[in-house]
Design a protein around this nucleic acid. Structure first.
Lengths: 190, 190
DNA sequence: TATGACATGTAATCTGTTACATGATTAG
DNA sequence: CTAATCATGTAACAGATTACATGTCATA
């Protein structure tokens, strides 16, 4: 019940560790070298976050001594951690998820297949599509009501938001179609 | 020089107050009722942020007593505040600005025309376009290098990011064209 | 008379940022 | 021998979230 809620960074770590255990340093490198730069690669963020996850029993760290360099601690996701990750992925998309930005949604989706299976990915996409339809509609409505009173730059910025959301919605169609195609292929083979 | 840096919320407040002075409550309503829901409408965020801006001399609050309801304090942007806002808008777009997300960029652009004039808006768009081209190229490169090793959901999520950036780049063309059209119209009239 | 809108604020807590500290190993 | 890379951590600080506290006025 009253479990302390885990911030986005915690889930990012959980998602990365799930298929492949890694050290704090490895994770920092992933954040700094790949397009996951949205997350901080600073030790002051990563190490405390890993400690918190360990205290919650979601990951377990194993110290590897004497392997040449300084000791390193490799973390792996526990059964409880995997359950938490799945729960996070399976939560239906809310309007607030969309206003808060698509980064966390895409993170959930990116991890969904490995952590919870293709069925969970499809489920998440459908939930996202439903939420996006409502979101796009409300943005369009707000645009219609207000665009006449905005300066050009304000109006263009708003348009960018509306069209970006429309585009995102289109992407969900494409993603769902991709999964359908995959399912057909598998069906043929099996 | 070593001025304490202002967080995104501070600039959002500055940008909203610039054309039209308002109270903390007014600002909260804007955040909660419009598509600026990305920013917190909680009093624990807004009121301290306004105090900080006031301490920096960027806004000045005037208490309106006896106007029927409980006293309210209306804030207006000072000359120093407007200068700071302009400086923020005029900063060239960096790669980090893009990885951190487009929200703050669009906020800067949305405010640019009213706070700094159409020329500043165009300048910002051109800076954004340049940065986006590099950003899209690096995303595409990373996608090419890694997409084969990803699960379907990871690949689709990455694609969404790449295409979103491409789409954003297209939008800059459209926005620049809009400003060109406007300039022609004005040229004809004057 | 009780609810909801108006209106401002504070306190506890959590997280992230920045900067520093430590220390081993390898490459130049 | 010095710099870079590997590798982990802490401490000070700033900012956001949540919840609470306070108080007025209108309306149902």
């Amino acid at each position: 019940m009253g479990q302390p809620k885990i911030p986005s960074l915690g889930y990012a770590l959980l998602g990365l560790l799930q298929p492949k255990p890694a050290s704090g340093y490895d994770l920092r490198k992933i954040f700094s070298s790949t397009s996951m730069k949205t997350y901080s690669d600073s030790p002051g963020a990563i190490y405390p976050a890993l400690s918190r996850l360990e205290q919650l029993g979601l990951v377990r760290g194993t110290i590897q001594e004497g392997a040449g360099l300084r000791r390193r601690q490799v973390f792996r996701v526990t059964a409880k951690g995997l359950a938490e990750l799945k729960k996070w992925i399976a939560k239906p998309i809310t309007p607030q998820d969309l206003t808060r930005g698509d980064k966390e949604i895409m993170l959930r989706f990116a991890f969904s297949e490995t952590a919870a299976g293709a069925a969970a990915s499809v489920e998440l996409l459908m939930s996202l599509q439903t939420a996006l339809k409502a979101h796009v509609a409300s943005l369009q409505k707000e645009y219609e009501a207000s665009h006449r009173f905005m300066p050009t730059s304000g109006r263009l910025a708003f348009e960018s938001g509306v069209r970006g959301a429309e585009y995102f919605l289109q992407w969900t169609e494409y993603a769902l179609a991709t999964y359908e195609k995959e399912a057909r292929k598998k069906g043929r083979v099996s």
